[in-house]
Write a protein that binds this DNA or RNA. Structure first.
Lengths: 196, 196
DNA sequence: GCGATGACAGATTTCAATATCTGTCATCAC
DNA sequence: GTGATGACAGATATTGAAATCTGTCATCGC
């Protein structure tokens, strides 16, 4: 009743994210979301079957934003080894910035991530695909010497090897003064492996 | 009063571990520990200034056991590259076995680990030292080509790159059917880097 | 007809009273 | 004298009654 705009899934997701931001994952309720939109909570249930589905959709939206922010680095011009370092650095910077800038929001999304492992798995697949794209280009360019058949497994290995620098479970460690050096050392290790 | 044995720090630690195992980290109290030993809780405070100090000591003991279990692999005979793979595999197997065999106990120690980051940092230093020892041997043998000056940073990078396979924060992922393959892929990556 | 509503049942959470725990210390037993 | 005890104060946790939330659905207004 507050506005005359149509109630869309998108508007509900936006309001849900705002409510999560304000109240945190433990206290955010569907009633809060409805109140923020000026509608009854029954209307929210018209667009999302359950509260869990709503939170899952918010999680998915948030993760997709990361994917989209990274795509330019995956598709950047230049040699593949530099692109890989650029992409990994961008991922680390993005996550570290989010964790440092608003630790509470980070904690909120960590809870959501824990609730929606299937969504997170798909997200990981997308990130690994971006890495795989860079590795394939590097293989064509002759910069990377990993056998072509191993590329998918290697892309995932690169993702896993850098886990500590993008997995939110480690966000507490990113504020350490030497985390940048530790990250650089792992990237160096990975680059050596790919060029071996 | 239950026994005539002397009350030692060691006996208290053993009882504390048992109480933690039985009740979990949230419900285990100093009174429980005293009860298990048949003494008053005041006597426990004679050996440990606070409950936090007691829990820290238990954490330290538990982590030291891991260090001791791994030392044979660090000091094993044979070429350094094989020793490194053996050591990493032993670490992963050890952690996975503990996590799979008794998930609740694992969750308990994850809580303790979260409470005692200083102890954990020292533990990590010990593990990194074992890796560094293997890398140094590999350098002498000519198996690893990493510059000698980089060895300490590289040892830590190897530890970080394999984080996902020994950090308890990831224990939920270790039961996945492809975790063994993912681990092998990362070890392969690390070996390629060291021999590059 | 179509999306929105709000009353409702059962599940979950909150809140305040009650109980237990942590850490101290004067006292006790040997 | 040494080490153990248990009463105590303040902090923390438990409990159960009351409030709120989730998810459904018959009904409403456009």
């Amino acid at each position: 009743m507050a506005t005359t705009e149509t109630l869309t899934a998108e508007r509900i997701l936006e309001a849900t994210e705002e409510v999560l931001r304000r109240y945190g994952p433990a206290k955010a309720t569907v009633v809060d979301v409805a109140r923020a939109l000026g509608v009854s909570h029954g209307s929210v249930y018209r667009h999302f079957r359950t509260k869990a589905a709503l939170r899952e959709a918010v999680t998915e939206r948030w993760l997709r934003r990361t994917i989209d922010a990274l795509r330019p680095y995956a598709d950047a011009p230049g040699p593949a080894d530099e692109r890989l370092t650029g992409w990994l650095t961008a991922l680390f910077a993005l996550k570290r910035e989010k964790a440092g800038g608003d630790p509470e929001l980070m904690a909120t999304f960590q809870v959501l991530i824990g609730e929606n492992s299937a969504v997170v798995d798909r997200h990981e697949d997308h990130l690994v695909e971006q890495i795989a794209g860079i590795l394939a280009a590097g293989h064509r360019e002759g910069v990377f010497t990993v056998p072509e058949a191993d590329l998918p497994a290697t892309a995932r290995a690169v993702f896993h090897a850098t886990d500590r620098f993008h997995n939110p479970a480690h966000s507490a460690e990113w504020s350490a003064p030497d985390s940048g050096a530790a990250f650089a050392a792992v990237v160096t290790l990975v680059q050596r492996a790919l060029k071996a």
